[in-house]
Amino acid sequence: MEEVFPRVVFYIAGIPVRNTVVSTWITMAVIIGAAWLAQRRAPALVEMLIDFLRSTIGDVMGGIDPDPFVPFLGSLIIFLLLANNIGVVPMVHTPTKDINAPAALAIVVFLAVYVFGVRQKGFLGYLKELLTPMLVLDLIGDVSRTVSMSLRLFGNIIATEIVVAVIYRLVKPIAPLTMVVLGMVTGVLQAYIFMVLATSAISSAVQPRNSK
């Protein structure tokens, strides 16, 4: 049971490094390596992937041109797809079972909403749209969306991990595998959900608000 929760493995200059951080580095290395390899050996595959991401994000965004947002949202979902499922490799811990990883991603999305809004409408234009009587409510909504996004991802991942650990304790050999497979389905679904929520938040920031 104790191995479910992240723990500190070593220190770099007094900063504690948890085992989930180490597996985040592994995830990043795998993604960078796969991207480098795919770009050299199979460019058609990369094009297919990007076309797929562009059409998925375009579907969620509605009428908005998704091209400026595909790099950010696409790398978000690629990282989450791998990070949620890398726990099936022995000795590697799922990075997102540490609350800090989903929280960091959600904070990045929180900032990206404002960055994209400013980039799309200009600083003064976006400021003029923000400064309405609804400013406080908007801010509360943004903060609670950030909290709920991070807690949703974290809760789903840690729930699967705990269920697997409990079943492993009861029945050793094969029974936990069923929950592992279910956990992989959950991981893929939660990665998609995270991206859809980020997409809808960004699209509500960049679309013209004073149309009505």
Partner: peptide, 23 residues
């Protein structure tokens, strides 16, 4: 189907919050 999947995951969140409090 897409809308259903997203809204199901959002509804599932309440159960996840309860689970987090229990944890």
């Amino acid at each position: 189907r897409n809308t259903l999947i997203v809204s199901l995951a959002l509804l599932e969140t309440t159960a996840i919050y309860v689970l987090l409090v229990i944890l």
